[in-house]
Design a binder for these strands. Structure first.
Length: 668
DNA sequence: TGTCCCGGCGCG
DNA sequence: AAAGCGCGCCGGGACA
């Protein structure tokens, strides 16, 4: 039995304007409308024709507030217009953006606050599922059958609308109860989660954490709750895709793929599916006797097979023609399947795609994006069809893309208070060259010069060119210029790989692999980095210690992540916990920074004042569209707002640069 | 025919 | 011996 009170479910529609309760008293709809107008905190859920954000509409909806739970037909939504327009309401949802899309599709907009219990739950219990049914069971010890179990599967045979129509005829009471449960559960869960959030004091490894965040409730109120609305606006607007680019690329890509498949079958001498890793394994390992480099996970059955991945194919590309063909095929079919075909199927009638920005998925506090995932569109250098160029805007308008420069590295420097590294940023240096210069006691200009000249070491006047960039270099060199350039390039590469890798807890084996040097050499370079940046080393240790003491990793704004495995008896689990302690502090803080920038930018109301709209977030990048003049006018303002996300400045400055063009690709 | 898991790989 | 963080999507293959 349920261990929560569930008051009787009221029901209203255009035809049913009076509800008589089991004990004979009754409620009139116009009185209920006034109650809703007076209530401050109201849970709302919709039962809809389907899951499509821009097409589907509510059939039924339910509300819960105070001790009232009720289900209504969608036909009386307009009666509640005063409540919907009230800016002081606090609307509660489970998956808020979806319900607001559904209401928006019938012309209703909610002016008040939108509190999403899934997002609240994710702040406290980021490693658990956040669907309402799970939350209710976890938080209240109460749950009810999910929609499909209750009413039947939604699929090709029957749409969500079909299923609801069927339930209407066959068991209307069940439908009413189900809908009311969703709103009632949302309300009860909200009350308890709010209490828990208020009792969760939080913490930050940054000594200059914004002072107005002391509990997770503060974080929710100041950051997550307003952010839901920002994301909704981005989803709602969508981004325009050039249909023709995709239509032209599709047959071209398909033809190239076919050709590679043919070539491969010819090479192998028998029918073989180039997409099948088991078949490739049989061919390369069993037939061709290539030595495996590493094994796969093995899965449920536990039979580990040699891995035929990029690393393997790269390793054998000069010795075996098949490796090249498979690599080529993988590149082409990835572009074709995931991006060309995948994106085409998700355009709306106006050729716009509306991704979902998921606020309760990534355990670090980052966003994720799905249907489509716009956060993994290929970079132009890996994409002959230039799909980023297919994200366009209207004639006379421009796309503006603004990127943070080395956001995570700057946050590391700020959190660690690593002054020499902060100085590199303050001077506007290339961070990897600067790190290399400090690590290897080499003038910054030498590293810069070597990077510029590495492709032309055979030029006869290479020394003069080097001297022009870095005066005095000829005297400093103790080896030939070609060797010195090679050394400097290696220094930068080592510094860059360590700079990125150490955030993830990369070990010497992996570093040796990417630097193509010995493990001892790699370990030596890591040691040099840690000696060069003692404050960063201390920060890593401190993050791990705090993880052990609190059981959590914390971001700059005080978001936290549970890392119980840091106290595990198993060495590998413990090591994972230690890596997460460091990485979450940095990656999660970067997520905080971008979020705050988005909230602050949204607050400027450029939608109304300039017709400029935020469209996408790709972790450290924001994409906008608007009339050309307006976008030009706001370019530097975007950069300033992104660089100053908090009311206090961190120890290391942040920097963002915006570009403008006819497409996302051009705006970079 | 549908569902799930897995290997593999795109992005930051 | 191993120990690179965070995501979502695709196609193959096993299974129902």
């Amino acid at each position: 039995m349920w261990n929560v009170d569930t008051p009787e479910t009221l029901y209203f529609s255009a035809e049913n304007t009076r509800y008589t309760t089991e004990n004979g008293s009754f409620y009139d709809l116009d009185a209920i409308v006034r109650c809703v107008e007076e209530a401050e905190t109201i849970a709302l859920d919709t039962e809809t024709t389907g899951l499509n954000k821009v097409k589907c509409v509510p059939l039924y909806w339910s509300l819960a507030f105070d001790e009232v739970r009720m289900t209504m037909h969608a036909d009386i939504l307009p009666l509640f217009d005063n409540a919907f327009r009230d800016p002081n309401k606090n609307w509660l949802f489970a998956n808020a953006k979806f319900d607001v899309h559904m209401l928006s599709n019938v012309g209703i907009h909610l002016a008040g606050k939108w509190s999403d219990v899934q997002v609240m739950h994710a702040l406290l219990y980021e490693d658990r599922p956040h669907r309402l049914k799970y939350i209710a069971e976890h938080i209240l010890g109460w749950t009810w059958a999910d929609f499909e179990t209750q009413f039947g599967k939604i699929g090709k045979k029957q749409s969500a609308e079909d299923v609801i129509r069927k339930a209407e005829n066959e068991d209307f009471d069940l439908l009413k109860e189900y809908a009311a449960n969703d709103a009632w559960g949302t309300l009860l869960v909200y009350r308890e989660l709010k209490r828990q959030l208020e009792g969760s004091f939080t913490h930050s490894l940054f000594s200059d954490k914004p002072p107005y965040i002391n509990t997770l409730w503060d974080f929710f109120r100041e950051v997550e709750r307003p952010f839901t609305k920002v994301l909704w606006k981005m989803e709602r607007r969508g981004i325009k895709v050039n249909r023709k680019t995709l239509e032209d690329a599709e047959p071209a890509a398909a033809a190239e793929i076919k050709q590679v498949e043919k070539d491969f079958v010819k090479l192998v001498g028998r029918p073989i599916n180039i997409r099948s890793t088991p078949q490739l394994c049989e061919y390369f390992i069993t037939d061709q006797k290539l030595e495996p480099l590493k094994m796969t996970g093995g899965g449920k059955s536990g039979d580990r097979k040699p891995s035929i991945d990029t690393n393997f194919l790269e390793h054998y590309k000069d010795r075996h023609q098949g490796a090249l063909l498979v690599t080529r095929h993988r590149e082409l079919s990835k572009l074709h399947g995931t991006y060309i075909v995948g994106l085409s199927s998700l355009m709306d009638g106006a050729d716009r795609i509306h991704t979902s920005f998921n606020q309760d998925v990534a355990r670090t506090g980052r966003l994720s994006s799905s249907e489509p995932n716009i956060q993994n569109i290929p970079r132009p250098e890996n994409d002959k069809w230039n799909l980023r160029g297919a994200f366009i805007t209207e004639p006379g308008w421009k796309v503006m893309a603004a990127d943070y420069a080395q956001l995570e590295m700057r946050l590391l420097a700020a959190a660690a208070m690593e002054q020499p590294m902060i100085d590199i940023f303050l001077r506007g240096w290339d961070i990897h060259c600067g790190n290399a210069a400090l690590m290897f006691n080499t003038p910054y200009e030498d590293i810069i010069g070597a990077k510029k000249l590495s492709k032309m070491v055979d030029d006869p006047d290479i020394l003069e060119q080097f001297e022009a960039i870095s005066p005095g270099v000829s005297e400093r060199m103790e080896v030939s210029v070609a060797e010195y350039i090679k050394d400097c390039v290696f220094y930068r590469s080592a510094a860059k790989n360590i700079g990125f890798g150490l955030n993830y807890g990369m070990g010497s084996a992996k570093l040796a692999n990417s630097l193509k040097c010995s493990r001892e050499d790699a370990q030596d370079k890591i040691n040099v980095y840690k000696e060069t940046y003692p404050a960063v080393s201390r920060f890593f240790e401190e993050a791990v210690n705090e993880g052990r003491n609190y059981g959590y990793a914390f971001t700059v704004m005080g978001r936290r992540r549970n890392i119980p495995m840091i106290l595990s008896n198993r060495r590998d689990e413990r090591a994972l916990g230690e890596r997460l302690a460091v990485n979450t502090a940095i990656q999660g803080s970067a997520a905080d920074v971008t979020r705050m920038a988005q909230i602050n930018i949204d607050h400027m109301n450029w939608n109304r004042t300039h017709d400029v709209h935020m469209l996408l977030q790709v972790h450290d990048e924001l994409v906008f569209e608007g009339p050309e003049d307006a976008v030009n006018e706001l370019k530097s303002e975007v950069e300033v707002l992104m660089a100053h996300p908090f009311s206090v400045n961190l120890a290391c400055p942040m920097e963002a640069e915006a570009g403008i063009g006819g497409s996302w690709g051009e705006a970079k």
